[in-house]
């Protein structure tokens, strides 16, 4: 499967800024990508690279203020999300796009039962449906044992893995076209992580939804994604089919990330650390944003910012020297 299906989401030159200090912080600066129906796309990067802000923007969830959509367009099924009125937006959120977040413990409301929380979305978006029966069906679908009893449980009575299953049940209750999973398994143990991933993949196949997977774990990307976008300092620095990017990364950042991950099969010699830290988005360096940490950086990288070079509609890279490095 590739992007041959029709486009569900198209993001064009998205600019998201935050105001607070003296200068606006450009959290997302000119991001463009698309997601086809039924496709799994991964957005990869370290904390502070703007991947979550990008994901939130798909349903215009960035709070304004302090946030501000300073430019670009987001088309969901042909409609411009950034220009929508509140009523249309409400229909989009939860029905067409839904989210699964990293911390199920803090994303669930502690004072309502699991059943109430799953039924809420069904009641809002599908008023004709039998909410209770649907909620039970969803809980069975995500593999929660004894769903009848669990309907009456409160979030604190469930384990982290079960809470994440509830989050997923809520997210798919209205059969969304796009599921945004923001680090869905980071807070979970590896064995539970494997359960949740299998569940997500299985549901995606059965319900035919597209998935945007936000993660910093390249192993997850290798196992699940069709295409991947690597972000650094609010920009996409490389994109392409996930197996190809992972096997032959072209951008020095993607390379460095891959070389910095300890491997299960063992590492020969030392892992190469990426020196320095992710830059503060309020004080980005001039030129290529990665140059202070890049081992290949030349004079040109310090003064001029590389533009996006698309090799095909599916793959591209933002680096002056990617050809020399290949």
């Amino acid at each position: 499967m590739s992007a041959s299906g029709s486009k569900l989401v198209t993001v064009e030159n998205l600019q998201v800024q935050f105001f607070g200090g003296t200068n606006p912080v450009r959290a997302v600066d000119g991001v463009s990508f698309d997601i086809a129906e039924g496709e799994t796309v991964a957005l990869v990067g370290e904390s502070g690279c703007g991947k979550s802000v990008t994901a939130m923007s798909l349903a215009r969830l960035v709070p304004q203020p302090p946030g501000c959509y300073a430019g670009g367009r987001i088309l969901f099924g042909g409609q411009d999300v950034l220009a929508m009125d509140e009523a249309t937006l409400r229909k989009l959120r939860g029905r067409d796009i839904s989210y699964v977040f990293q911390e199920p413990g803090s994303a669930l409301n502690p004072v309502f039962t699991i059943g109430w929380q799953i039924m809420e979305a069904i009641c809002i978006h599908r008023p004709d449906a039998d909410a209770r029966a649907e909620a039970l069906e969803m809980m069975r679908l995500v593999g929660i044992p004894e769903p009848e009893q669990r309907l009456k449980s409160y979030p604190h009575e469930l384990s982290g893995g079960q809470q994440q299953r509830v989050m997923i049940a809520m997210a798919i209750a209205c059969r969304p076209k796009l599921l945004v999973a923001d680090e869905p398994t980071t807070a979970l143990d590896v064995t539970i992580q494997a359960q949740i991933l299998d569940l997500l993949r299985d549901l995606q196949k059965r319900l035919g939804m597209a998935m945007l997977l936000i993660t910093h774990n390249l192993g997850l990307v290798a196992e699940t994604a069709h295409r991947m976008f690597v972000m650094y300092a609010g920009r996409i620095v490389e994109s392409g089919a996930a197996p190809e990017v992972l096997a032959q990364p072209r951008h020095p950042y993607t390379r460095a990330l891959l070389e910095a991950v300890p491997r299960l099969e063992g590492t020969e010699g030392r892992l190469k650390a990426i020196e320095g830290t992710v830059p503060n988005p309020a004080e980005l360096p001039p030129g290529c944003k990665f140059h202070p940490r890049c081992i290949f950086a030349g004079e040109r990288c310090r003064v001029e910012e590389p533009v996006w070079e698309a090799q095909s509609p599916e793959c591209g890279v933002r680096c002056f020297f990617w050809k020399e490095l290949a």
Binding site: V190, A194, G219, A222, T224, L246
Partner: peptide, 30 residues
């Protein structure tokens, strides 16, 4: 064995795409 199989890993993930090999998924929580 199950722990090792559950860890997401780049090389393993890419290999699994071609071989279609499934991981061992443990049932339930600890």
């Amino acid at each position: 064995e199950a722990l090792l199989s559950a860890v997401p890993d780049v090389a393993k993930g890419l290999a699994a795409r071609t071989t279609g090999q499934n991981r061992i998924v443990l049932r339930g929580d600890m």
